[in-house]
Design a binder for these strands. Sequence first.
RNA 1: GUCCCCUUCGUCUAGUGGCCCAGGACUCAAGGUUUUCAUCCUUGCAACAGGAGUUCGAUUCUCCUAGGGGACGCCA
Length: 481
Amino acid sequence: MTKERLRFAPSPTGDLHIGGARAALFNWLYARKTGGQFLLRIEDTDRERSTDAALESILSSMRWLGMNWDDEPVKQSQRGELYKEAVQKLLDSGAAYPCYCTKEELEAEREHAVAEKLDYHYSGKCRNLDQATRDTYNKERKPFTVRFRVPEGETSFEDMVHGETTFKNESIGDFIIARPDGTPVYLLAVAVDDADMGITLVMRGDDHLSNTPKQLMLMKALGAAQPRFAHLPQVLGMDKKKLSKRHGAASVMEYERMGFLSDAVVNFIALLGWNPGDDREKMSLDELITSFSIDHISKKSGVFDMDKLEWLNGQYLNDLAPEELLPHVTKLFIEAGYLDKDSAETRRDYILSIIVMLKERCRLLPEFVEKAVYFFNDPTEYDAKGEKKQFKDLSAADRLEELASRFELLETFDIASTEDVIRNYAEELEVGAGKLIHPTRLSVSGVTQGPSLFDMLISIGKEKTVARMKTAASYIRNKLS
RNA sequence: GUCCCCUUCGUCUAGUGGCCCAGGACUCAAGGUUUUCAUCCUUGCAACAGGAGUUCGAUUCUCCUAGGGGACGCCA
């Protein structure tokens, strides 16, 4: 069996879209699974909208997601000759013809059809022009586009996800394949490139389903081998409309910025319109490769559910070893001003301990920053609700001060000793330990929730713990006097 | 308008004629664990678009209707 050759063909007019990323991923997975080739083709024939920056952004998103490609990416803008030859070949064989209709004329035709509620196709006005007329037009240097002469009959193909799909050719009007300046139009470029690149399987969005017969006809007329097709369902936003900027985040880059892990994003995207055939949800890249199969691709378009992505990301965050999280979290801490580069080195163990305490409490990377403030800064204010409950009278201040001084006397400030202090004092006061734990937490962290109090205290250290408790005590006295 | 595609819980989905008064996951709700929060565990709510067939039997097959999407560009 010959090796499969697949391709992803983005047009560099913006960042890598979630839908595009999914198409790329499926192609990549299939290529890697079958030991085939995964090629990149940059569809930049629209010079107006294509930019190098967009191309770079797309490539970097692909790298971030963990996809690599074989060979150098092919750029359509550099293959003008190839398309010209193909157009000439089609012209010579009579499979295509020059069309001298102007944009205005065509526009009028179209408007007329719409007004009359008629099915619009190109009228075929220039289809059977005699040679004499063409000669005169050419002598006048009348600009012309090249149109493909759609043959009679029907075009059908076996789509690997939709099954046999048939189009009547009469429902397809003669379409333009080259502009007056000789540049090719999408349909032609794709047909020529897929043939030239030896693509064996085209996997792309199902918005291309009705383009497929046109490409097939072109390839046939060109005498090229035809690839197989697999059309992927659309990715929709929560409102069931095509995912776009208005849905908040439509590009891969935005998810990176929001603090998602690439593995979680890939995993989630893979499950959009595909399933492994069993109940697995959290899957590594390798698992995805071995499990991937086209017959588990869905026909139904799917909604991008951010809640589920966040949940998945939380699973990844929680399952990752602290060491693996270290670079990500350190970077964010530096950005937040908690650390500088040097102290990040020396305080490695401290950061690691914070990660251990917080990772099961976070779903997104940036949550580490907000949840870790008090590991770096003294609280500047106290949670309002907590304050109302824990700092409501002078005895709260007394207790904090008493605890602080008992902590101060401790020779070893560890989990066992701090817990002893709290529990013993609670017993003396004949109250539950919670009565001391909650105010202590609030005084040291400023918030009412977080990791185990004792873990937190020893991590912050005796000195700071004591100081913060004393500060809180005088804060209470001040407020109540 | 014409052609093509699609239709299972709010969402992602399993299901290829009996195992389905439809299973899993997210969300939500309730309970348990926990010093708090989170994690984790348990339980619950919640769907085969509608109608005709075919069949002993349809979520699964056929047809029709409705709804949604795509194409009909000198955009890709």
